[in-house]
């Protein structure tokens, strides 16, 4: 079986799975198992989504969400990689900072919702605050894991060969940590999207989440569903983009090279 065949049959299976879900979503309300007011049939949800996609307002909201997501993720990623490498490489710093990191990291970023509301109100600032806080720790922790995973023998070798600190970082620490960094980026991208939408939903910053909130409070149930489906599709796009990036960046890594499509 060639590779193309395999991916086609995979695609077929996947399509069957999605088709099954749509059928189920269509059948359950039509058969009256769940009240149509609470779960509109799939066809109506998709029609509503198509109708919404024709309005410019939705695209503006989507753009606002993505702007908050991208800006927050970029800020958090840059800050976390620099912080993580410094903490990981400078001896003693890891022990000194670990209690602080361990305390700050698990603080759920939604705990900052009231603070963001007070400081920024319903605006991009609130979104950024939540997104950056949530994404930063995801990346930082992975960078720290990655730096700690450097083979001690290789590290000692590099040291005894007299490699400078900078070239140790560049040639030993960074390649070792890169898979972890990319994992961190992937996790952070997903969390950042969740938090971007959450900020809009709870605080009311403009964007997709705010639209869902409006639709819900005005009782437009099919619109709520349609927007949730859209949020899911955007989430998939976000994941796919980061995975593609990960694959590209790690093309040399054995874990990626040995992965044969089933």
């Amino acid at each position: 079986m060639t590779r193309a065949d395999g991916s086609w049959s995979r695609l077929g299976h996947g399509a069957a799975g999605l088709g099954g879900l749509l059928l189920l979503m269509e059948a359950v309300p039509r058969l009256g198992l769940v009240d149509e007011r609470f779960l509109p049939p799939a066809s109506r949800i998709l029609a509503t989504l198509a109708g919404e996609l024709a309005t410019p307002g939705l695209w503006i909201a989507l753009g606002q969400t993505m702007r908050g997501w991208a800006a927050g993720l970029a800020l958090a990623f840059g800050a976390a990689v620099v912080t993580g490498v410094v903490i990981g490489v400078v001896p003693g710093l890891r022990a000194l900072t670990s209690s602080t990191v361990e305390f700050l990291r698990p603080i759920p970023s939604v705990a900052l919702v009231p603070l963001a509301t007070l400081l920024f109100g319903p605006s991009l600032g609130s979104t950024l605050m939540l997104v950056v806080y949530a994404a930063f720790w995801q990346v930082l922790i992975q960078v720290l894991y990655g730096v700690a995973a450097v083979d001690p023998v290789a590290s000692d070798t590099a040291r005894s060969y007299g490699l400078s600190a900078w070239s140790r970082i560049r040639r030993l620490v960074w390649p070792t940590a890169l898979p972890y960094v990319m994992t961190g980026l992937r996790l952070a991208a997903a969390v950042a999207f969740i938090l971007a939408v959450t900020a809009e939903l709870v605080i009311g910053s403009p964007g997709l989440g705010a639209q869902i909130q409006v639709a819900q409070s005005s009782g437009a149930v099919p619109t709520v569903y349609a927007l949730i489906v859209l949020a899911g599709l955007v989430g998939i796009a976000v994941n796919a983009a980061v995975r593609l990036l990960e694959r590209r960046v790690l093309a040399w890594h054995p874990a990626v090279r040995s992965e044969v499509p089933a």
Partner: peptide
């Protein structure tokens, strides 16, 4: 492998939905 290929897109979709947006929906249900 077959089950996985069938369900993967569906699962990926559900995972990709930011969970907080489900709150208004689940409140409804």
């Amino acid at each position: 492998p077959r089950l996985r290929a069938t369900l993967e897109p569906v699962l990926e979709f559900f995972r990709a939905v930011p969970p907080p947006v489900l709150v208004p929906l689940i409140m409804l249900l």
